[in-house]
């Protein structure tokens, strides 16, 4: 497999019209090999025979339910599995039981959403095998470059090292660059705990982080405070 689009996908749904729609969407998105099953029996056979690289299940099937089928197939293989459900309550079951499904989407769904989520899962599972190791994890903020692998901040006046907590905080902000991250999520990333009791600690760490990455820490350009909510790493990072 050179790209994720070479992945063979199995679609299980009792509605032929939905299968047709899914095939159209997936073909258009670039997935060439899409096979389908209308019930659990067919799905089991095809799974054994064709060894698909990813499966999309409907929950309600004529001869069983998608949850049991998934659990059964999961024992044979670790390929990505995604649920397509027409019932809100399935979401609770999926979350509650922790069945090991990679994702779920409720019907009706937007084709773009399905393709994005599916590609995301496939990439996460197969990309490391497909391509060379990813480029070094780097964040460029003006004249400052942060290397997350080494935890070193390169500035015009030399190198500074990030502490473990600073690293965790900056990484969380970087993963959500351009978006606000609540103080609560930051605290969870760095201390794995609720914000309560950490309010000042968090502020202190942010100040130290600013001292390392900002030109003028008292007038931050990148690591911005969003009053009452949290912090945000500015999206614009032209070198």
């Amino acid at each position: 497999m050179k790209t994720i689009f070479e992945a063979k996908l199995l679609v299980v749904d009792d509605e032929p019209e939905i299968i047709k729609l899914l095939k159209t969407i997936l073909h258009q998105a670039g997935f060439a090999q899409v096979i389908s099953a209308e019930n659990c029996r067919q799905a089991r056979e095809l799974f054994a025979l064709e060894k698909p690289d990813g499966v999309i299940f409907d929950v309600t099937l004529p001869d069983g339910d998608g949850f049991s089928l998934m659990q059964e197939l999961r024992q044979q293989s670790n390929v990505p599995m995604l649920f397509l459900s027409a019932r809100d309550e399935d979401e609770n079951r999926l979350l509650g039981l922790g069945l090991g499904a990679d994702d779920y989407i409720t019907k009706p769904f937007l084709p773009r959403e399905l393709v994005l989520r599916l590609s995301g899962i496939l990439r996460r599972v197969y990309q490391p095998l497909l391509t060379k190791p990813p480029a070094e994890e780097c964040l460029v903020l003006g004249a400052v470059t942060v290397n997350f692998k080494s935890g070193i901040v390169q500035t015009s006046d030399g190198e500074k090292t990030l502490t473990a907590k600073e690293h965790a905080l900056l990484k969380k902000l970087w993963q959500n660059q351009g978006h606000i991250v609540t103080a609560d999520s930051l605290c969870r990333s760095a201390w794995d705990d609720d914000l309560y009791g950490y309010e000042n600690t968090l502020m202190v760490h942010i100040r130290r982080l600013r001292e390392k990455i900002e030109v003028d820490p008292s007038q931050p350009q990148y690591l911005l405070t969003v009053r009452g909510m949290g912090y945000k790493l500015a999206a614009e990072t032209k070198p």
Binding site: I18, L21, T24, I25, K107, P108, L110, P111, R112
Partner: peptide, 12 residues
Amino acid sequence: RTPLSMVMGYAS
């Protein structure tokens, strides 16, 4: 939801 999937999918 099943017919609506079709409407939404193809409209999109």
